[in-house]
Design a protein around this nucleic acid. Structure first.
Lengths: 341, 341
DNA sequence: CTGTTAGCGCGTTCAT
DNA sequence: ATGAACGCGCTAACAG
């Protein structure tokens, strides 16, 4: 099955290949009659221009790369199965598609993933990339900064975003935490505990910082460092953390680094027959699907995945298409979602 | 930033561009000394061959397409957020990566998704595709059959798999259902109910057929059509179905089209204070993560996603690389996973 | 309005 | 062993 090319179409339509190109690319200067005739032949033959060839000839590839840095202790299915990364991936793809771009997805757990990324990016198959879960100073990403690059969930870098500085897209983690603290204060909680997320991750650190700052700024209850327990965003860490907290300090509020953790907290409290929100208020972060269905339903901070995905892709496309952008940092607002807990 | 090309490297190394090509593609007839010198320059300059150009010159693209047909009533984040499709997607990507292929992911909910697919496939950016959630006689897929094509979860088509017939990869749904029926029979259940999955989907139909066949073949209890209720794979449908069943026929076993549905069944039974497995045995299908954690934990049929993903990609790669394959149908074994329910 | 021509960057004979 | 030259399929600048 030898491919049918623009030359074939040209021959069939008794015009030159240039005219075919003009029709295909919607050039104005081609008579209606000719255009119609050519289009008809294209339809009938099912001709599709060879993308690689047009790319070579200067057309942008309209392919983006999504690189997900899953730590090696994650199985591949955990990542898209994750209540957060899975939907996020889908939304990024969706946003890109809506803009006429396609997305190649790669995970760092795959063999040679970084080398493959080099080939994809420098080899011009993808014209830009969004990285999630990587540190912006990671020496493996830095080489890509001259290309259109967006980093999700990492500290913004100073510098001209139109130059070799990646754009950072983040939730307003600190602002979100302030909502959480404000909420438990309004419920008259005084012994407010915090179970952190993974502090190796930017949002994990930011949320902790946000918690501390809010406690100080709102000044409605003492900030007790012994009530801050380290977790890792997992349900398990929430469960364990809550058990430990209840045994030692009996807080009247537990704020968690994310919803999964908070759900672990709820499970622990249920086992301990501690009433929520009667004796202890619980607040999560992310507003994952499940948080609506647990009992009691989880009060949380919304981290709208669709927004972050859309902004990330929008920025990347701006960069790819050479539009000037203002700042290297994009912040997605968060909001408090009051529920039973 | 004008790209550095093979010509540049050639100039720097004082050889011709052909030699660069030979080095890059590991040709034997290049003196060690020259090879070393060239490699060094390549390293130093960070030169990466232009993929599009090499593709044009005849090299395969090593890019595959994953097309997910989510019905339009699904939101994009539901799909990857789905307990089944999300992980499946990740595993497909992973399998492809391990074989040195990259994957472009698209969803039918995106605008122009089918047209884009045409451009990707016929435009030679991807050299093969796996479709999930599409009917094999769908007129929109059929044009792609001459290309390397794999369909997940749909009835195999007759014909030469090396020709214009897609390869179908499926779980052994009927066999799995036989395990389920055997299990409840061994528990001496006599009034066995079945809540179907979405019958618009192949596996939904197959599992129902498997249930009926197993009931007849094992012949341990009557096959009561009134105990077969239509569901749609959702937790909701299991919940509603179970409530209805308990009100009317009080079965002593409920087998579901999938785990989510079964989890809905568990929720209904808990509300009705019906003991599981004391009064009613419950069996799911898929062995999703959650089934291990619900109370009581869910007995189910494993549908190993990693296996199906791996086989699908393996077959697709075989097709892309022109290897002869035997059958157009690949069946992934299932197994019974006994748990509390 | 339309055809001719020159690349795009690389793989691959074919000579040398 | 190595360079020159052609072609992959298409876009775009240039001439008519």
């Amino acid at each position: 099955m030898t491919r049918i090319t623009a030359d074939d179409i040209a021959r069939m339509a008794n015009v030159s290949r240039s005219t075919i190109s003009r029709v295909v690319n919607d050039y104005p200067n081609v008579p209606e009659e000719t255009r119609r005739r050519v289009m008809e032949i294209i339809q009938k033959t099912g001709y599709v221009p060879h993308q690689q060839a047009r790319n070579l000839a200067g057309v942008q590839s309209r392919i983006l790369l999504l690189f997900i840095n899953n730590n090696n202790d994650y199985y591949a299915d955990k990542i898209a199965g994750s209540t957060f990364f899975g939907p996020l991936t889908a939304l990024l793809i969706d946003s890109a598609n809506r803009r006429g771009y396609d997305i190649i997805v790669t995970q760092s757990s795959a063999p040679h993933s970084w080398e493959r990324t080099r080939h994809l990016l420098f080899g011009r198959v993808a014209s830009g990339a969004v990285f999630v879960g990587v540190a912006n100073k990671d020496p493996r990403v830095r080489p890509f900064y001259p290309l259109p690059t967006v980093i999700l969930d990492h500290k913004p870098m100073k510098g001209d975003p139109n130059g070799p500085v990646p754009s950072a897209v983040n939730f307003d983690n600190r602002g979100g935490m302030e909502w959480a603290v404000r909420h438990v204060l309004e419920k008259n909680c005084r012994k407010i505990a915090y179970i952190t997320g993974n502090l190796g991750i930017y949002s994990g650190r930011e949320r902790l910082t946000g918690f501390r700052q809010a406690m100080k700024r709102l000044d409605g209850a003492p900030l007790l460092e012994e009530l801050i327990i380290q977790g890792d965003f997992s349900e398990q860490s929430g469960y364990i953390g809550a058990k430990a907290l209840m045994e030692t300090h009996q807080p009247d509020a537990v704020i968690s680094g994310d919803d999964e953790c908070a759900i672990g907290v709820l499970r622990a409290l249920e086992e301990l027959k501690v009433s929520v929100p009667g004796e202890v208020s619980v607040v999560g972060f992310d507003d994952i699907e499940l948080s609506r269905y647990v009992k009691p339903s989880l009060s949380t901070i919304s981290a709208p995945k669709r927004d972050i995905a859309d902004k990330a892709v929008e920025r990347l496309v701006d960069l790819v298409e050479g539009r000037q952008v203002q700042s290297s940092s994009i912040v997605i607002p968060t909001a408090f979602i009051p529920r039973e807990s």
